[in-house]
């Protein structure tokens, strides 16, 4: 799979060959500008790819919104919309592919408890959240879609030191329960050690090495 810069025509990603299976814990490592974020964006088909293809359960995904609901990308700096945290956890249920899902308050409350937060968090205006709280909101948002793969772009960069292990443990627990897969972009070697089942080293838009 490859992707070109739409303006200059330069290849931004090339010769990417990657398969993700249930339970996978993949870390993308590599210097800034090596294409980690672009790879995540291409994996969920947010950006067009210019060579190769992405197969989902053996076939090219036909219904792309449905595919993105299953392969959720979490932006490095998540955006929030107007309103409270709860509003932010509700609005996307109106999308056609999410119609069969419901906002599950008790599940969210249960999730929040694991981060030592309570229902009051839901009533906060989302625009006043700290960077770490916004990441947490983004994670809850993604999980309420009941995805199969989470694409996490430096999810803990904005979290304080004590919350990082909570976050990681929480994601692992979700992975076990949902039998999902995760792809992490990470810069810290300690996190890579804790998180990774497989480490893919990227350089200049391609995967140069894989460690298990």
């Amino acid at each position: 799979m490859g992707r070109r810069d739409p303006v200059s025509g330069r290849w931004l990603l090339r010769d990417i060959d990657l398969s993700i299976v249930r339970g996978d814990r993949i870390v993308l490592a590599g210097p800034n500008g090596s294409g980690k974020t672009l790879l995540l964006r291409s994996l969920c088909l947010l950006d067009p790819i210019d060579s190769g293809e992405i197969l989902w359960h053996g076939r090219p995904p036909r219904n792309i919104p449905q595919f993105r609901r299953c392969v959720v990308y979490l932006h490095q700096r998540p955006v929030v919309s107007e309103g409270t945290v709860e509003d932010n956890l509700r609005w996307f249920f109106s999308f056609k592919v999410n119609r069969n899902l419901r906002f599950d308050r008790s599940l969210i409350t249960e999730y929040l408890r694991q981060f030592r937060l309570d229902d009051r968090f839901l009533h906060k205006p989302a625009s006043l959240l700290s960077g770490g709280e916004t990441q947490l909101l983004a994670l809850l948002r993604a999980l309420s879609l009941q995805p199969e793969i989470l694409l996490l772009d430096e999810p803990t960069a904005a979290l304080d030191v004590e919350t990082v292990p909570l976050f990681e443990r929480f994601v692992f627990q979700w992975q076990r329960e949902a039998n999902g897969a995760t792809v992490w972009v990470s810069h810290t070697s300690e996190q890579i050690k804790r998180v990774a089942g497989r480490v893919l080293h990227m350089e200049n838009g391609t995967i140069t090495r894989e460690d298990k």
Partner: peptide, 14 residues
């Protein structure tokens, strides 16, 4: 914001 909606399963119109 538009891209966020797309990542959460929105169609281009949504």
């Amino acid at each position: 914001r538009v891209e966020l909606a797309l990542t959460l399963g929105a169609t281009r119109w949504e």
